[in-house]
Amino acid sequence: MTIQEFFAMGGYAFYVWTSYGLTLIVLLANIILPIVQRKKLLRELALKQQRHR
């Protein structure tokens, strides 16, 4: 199997790769968003704590 054949997916490239691509985006977002939000919250809380000292 060549690389071209692999990406062509026997003519179903659109359906297969859209499925995999969309899944990747949704699953990545579910990991990245809570981490980013938690880091932001930690920074805010640390700042507040410094001011109150």
Binding site: G10, G11, Y12, Y15, V16, S19, Y20, T23
Partner: peptide, 20 residues
């Protein structure tokens, strides 16, 4: 995506099964 053969009825479209 690579090792499993295409389905005898559905060709490569069935590979969606691995996430669906």
């Amino acid at each position: 995506l690579v090792l499993a053969p295409p389905d005898y009825q559905q060709g490569d479209s069935y590979r969606i099964i691995y996430i669906h």
